[in-house]
Computed example of a mutant assay.
Amino acid sequence: MSPTLEFSFRIAITVDAPTIVSSDPARGKRQLIPILGGEVSGALEGHVLPGGVDSQFIQPDGLCRLSARYALATKDGTVYIENNGIRRLPSAFTANLFGDDMGFFKHVPVEDIYFKATPTFEVDDPRLHWLTESVFICDAKRTPDTVNLDMYRVL
């Protein structure tokens, strides 16, 4: 039987401006994006705790390898998430990735951005244990100020 996906929940994350650690279009760019907060809806309900970070390395060809760490406060307890993935923009926008202003995302059609990740979860309450018993896939959408993460359980 082939796997299927079941929508579980959405995390709408508010982010701050990136902190650029290093940037060289010939070698790549390392940036840290602070996670300020957000909302969670679906099978989980709650909010994103401030203090998380999305660590990104943007390769010279524009492929972004990301590793985000953040926590949720839900009605059933706290959830810690490690979300690792990739984001790829149309080549026409690659040069914009090496600047400081992420506002250019408003000009990139969301459907033209490949943005997928594989989250893993740590939980502190037995009611949330279901998050640790399945594989999840994250389908993400990036806007100038937010990141919407749709979490799907692989059945």
Rank of each mutant, 00 (worst) to 15 (best):
Y152F: 15
I113S: 08
G77S: 03
D112M: 12
D124Q: 04
S8T: 05
I58Y: 09
G77D: 04
G46A: 10
V48T: 09
A73T: 04
P60R: 05
T4C: 06
L72D: 03
G42Y: 03
F9Q: 01
G77I: 02
T118K: 07
G38S: 11
V48A: 11
I20F: 06
A26P: 00
G38D: 09
V15H: 13
I86N: 07
D112C: 10
R127P: 00
E111A: 13
K29T: 06
H47E: 15
T120E: 05
R65C: 10
V135N: 01
I35E: 06
Q59W: 09
A43L: 12
F98Q: 03
G77P: 05
N148Q: 10
I11C: 08
G28W: 04
C64K: 02
H47G: 13
A73C: 04
R30K: 01
Y80Q: 08
E6C: 04
L131M: 05
F104K: 05
G77E: 02
G38V: 09
L63N: 08
D112N: 14
L49S: 13
N96K: 12
V135F: 07
F121V: 01
F7S: 05
K29A: 02
D112L: 13
N96A: 14
L72C: 02
P60I: 07
T4K: 11
G51Q: 08
V40L: 11
V154H: 00
V40H: 09
A12V: 10
D54Y: 09
N84K: 10
R27N: 11
T74Y: 05
I33R: 11
A92V: 13
T132L: 00
Y114P: 00
N148S: 13
D76Y: 02
K116I: 03
A26W: 02
M102S: 15
V123E: 06
L32K: 02
Q59H: 15
D150G: 01
P25T: 03
P119Q: 03
F93R: 06
Y152M: 02
R142Q: 14
S2A: 15
T143Q: 04
H107R: 09
F104R: 05
V48M: 10
V154D: 01
L128S: 06
P3K: 06
T14D: 15
P60E: 07
T19F: 11
K106I: 06
K29L: 13
G38F: 11
S23R: 03
Y152V: 00
D150R: 01
S23F: 04
A17R: 12
T120V: 11
M1E: 13
R153G: 03
F93T: 08
R87W: 10
M151V: 14
G99H: 07
T146D: 11
A43I: 03
R153S: 01
F105I: 14
V135L: 11
P50K: 03
W130N: 05
T14R: 13
L128E: 07
D139S: 02
I58N: 03
A92T: 13
K141G: 00
I11F: 02
T143A: 09
A12D: 12
D54H: 08
L63W: 05
I13C: 11
T143M: 04
D112T: 13
L63T: 15
Q59F: 14
P90Q: 10
K116M: 01
P50G: 08
Q56L: 07
C138V: 01
K141Y: 04
A92R: 14
G46H: 08
N83Q: 06
L32F: 07
L66K: 02
R87E: 10
E39N: 13
A17C: 01
G46V: 10
